[in-house]
Amino acid sequence: MTTSTPAPELAPRLSTASPATRAWRRFRSNKLAMIGTTIVILLILFCFAGPLVWVTDQVTVSIDLAIINKPWGTPGHPLGTNNLGYDILGRLMKAGQTSLIIGLLAGLLATLIGTCWGAIAGYIGGPVDAIMMRVVDAGIALPATFLLLILSAIMHPSIPLMIVVIGLVSWLVPARLIRAEAITIKTRDYVLALRAVGGSHTRAVARHIIPNTIGTMIVNATFQVADAILLVAYISFLGMGVEPPATDWGAMLTKGIDYTYAGYWWLIFPPGLLIVITVCAFNFIGDGLRDMFDVKGRQS
């Protein structure tokens, strides 16, 4: 055995910025992601703080012909009114609340279920994995829209019901993604080291597998939110959404479609545009987050 005085190891080129700062910098460098974030913040302000500023009655149906079906630019109704006399601008805010709440919570629920299901299937592997993933395959084979329509037809669609149902049909794709990650993570040495000292499977999944899929999880969650908002819009457009006087952007589209040939474009364009903008914004954020969590993009 020798006594040597080895050269000092080259110190890692530690950036002075903390990991969080660097991740934020990477996110910020994606212009689309920043635009997406700004749009989502503005939309949330519009839908939730807007009604405090622009107070309108969205419950009482008006039969006053002087109030209904006013075109855009009418004093007091910048975007006009619909056939029941509701102010369109105020209605957009109220409908947006429904769309955003359902979208965010359903996306979150789908991500939660999908992550747990996928992590457990991938970690255990073997026949358990095979059975759990066949369940996912079977679920993907069922058309989600069809399932939602039937449920809406036999039950009274309310916001909590919509959240649960959309959450329950859209966890399948995240489950597949997370399972694929879990399979690679479970062979990492830190999981083996935990098993070697006698750590439990629960600990391996909860403390090592799931936290290490967080990148995939969050990125996927943003896409889930966008998908859920679209799904709510489909259902409502087909007339099976939340019941009046509650509404959402999809329902506004349906109502407006009857008047398209009359040239009342202000009934359709604003909600349609908001759906497109919201879905795009969440997708942009998803892309930005993917850059942020991309290990290969980590310089130094």
Binding site: R188, D189, Y190, A193, R207, H208, P211, N212, I214
Partner: peptide, 8 residues
């Protein structure tokens, strides 16, 4: 690189 959990 893989013996320590990167998120701990």
């Amino acid at each position: 690189g893989s013996s320590l959990d990167p998120r701990m």
